[in-house]
Write a protein that binds this DNA or RNA. Structure first.
Length: 271
DNA sequence: AGGTTGACCTGGACGC
DNA sequence: TGCGTCCAGGTCAACC
């Protein structure tokens, strides 16, 4: 499901609702693969902690926790493909596939719901705050962006998806930014010219900013903390449009596989 | 070490 | 209606 704009929308929505709340109790479904850290460590860190802030790092939602005034670690929620993080009154019935519930002091609950179970919960303790692996695409400079792909032999599309190089970009925004930059998804990352790299960075930052403004892309079941769908799917130029006409030149859009992921591009606009 | 592939899951869409 | 097949916003471990 969720890439940078969707995760940012969810994180901001949850932050606005639960910042400053104390977690009084934690329940889990006990499905082992949901927990990237030992479940006992997660329960121990969360129970009794206060939520200082909720934010996005890459595709992860990060809850910065405090006990009194002291930093008490970070709770990481990765939504996988179908994960949702909802804030609800406790009386509202739990949706199917709920895997964790954080009960708050005021009676509300933060619920992690994930039908496909590709999502992961974990805890870390990082001095100075968790920033994750990979570079943040919304703020990366042109200079730094140009160095990321030097000497890389993999396709630029696959490089964009590699979270240890650049974090937060997924299949939708990789395809959309490559289209807007006029670059073939299969082109070797290390062979992009500086001009192409500058165009790609500009396109990526523009597309991410626009998508955040529209609350992300709702392809099937993505919703924010209020259960509201995003609107950026209406702006997609290539993602999900294989076989349809390019909105810029009318050519039929092609579907290929790059880095194991379905990729749609315009053979005329992207060289 | 960098790059590629398949496995991990459920459910929705589609074809017969 | 029902069953089978394919596909999906993402990672990772296991391979080459």
């Amino acid at each position: 499901m969720p890439e940078l704009p969707e995760v940012e929308t969810v994180a901001n929505g949850v932050d606005a609702r639960v910042r400053g709340q104390k977690i009084v109790r934690v329940w889990t479904s006990g499905k082992p693969q949901t927990f990237k850290s030992p479940e006992t460590e997660i329960l121990e860190m969360l129970t009794g902690a206060k939520i200082d802030r909720v934010r996005r790092v890459g595709k992860s939602i990060v809850m910065d926790l405090v006990r009194g005034k002291a930093a008490a670690g970070q709770f990481l929620v990765h939504l996988g493909m179908t994960g949702r993080l909802l804030v609800s009154q406790a009386e509202v019935p739990l949706p199917p596939h709920t895997h964790a519930v954080l009960s708050l002091a005021d009676g509300r609950e933060v619920r992690f719901v994930d039908p496909r179970r590709f999502g992961r919960l974990s805890v870390v303790t990082v001095e100075g705050g968790y920033e994750g692996p990979g570079v943040e695409p919304t703020t990366v400079t042109a200079e730094e962006f140009a160095t990321l792909f030097k000497g890389r032999k993999l396709a630029i599309k696959a490089a964009l998806l590699n979270q240890s190089i650049l974090h937060g970009v997924g299949n939708i925004y990789a395809d959309e930014s490559l289209f807007r930059a006029g670059i073939r998804p299969r082109k070797q990352a290390g062979k992009l010219t500086r001009g192409e790299l500058d165009r790609l960075r500009a396109a990526l930052q523009q597309v991410l900013a626009h998508a955040i403004k529209l609350g992300g892309s709702s392809v099937s079941d993505y919703v924010d903390a209020d259960g509201i769908r995003g609107f950026f799917q209406l702006e997609h130029k290539v993602y999900g449009r294989a076989g349809e006409a390019c909105k810029d030149c009318g050519t039929g859009l092609k579907k290929i596989v790059v880095g194991g992921r379905t990729t749609v591009y315009c053979p005329v606009c992207q060289r």
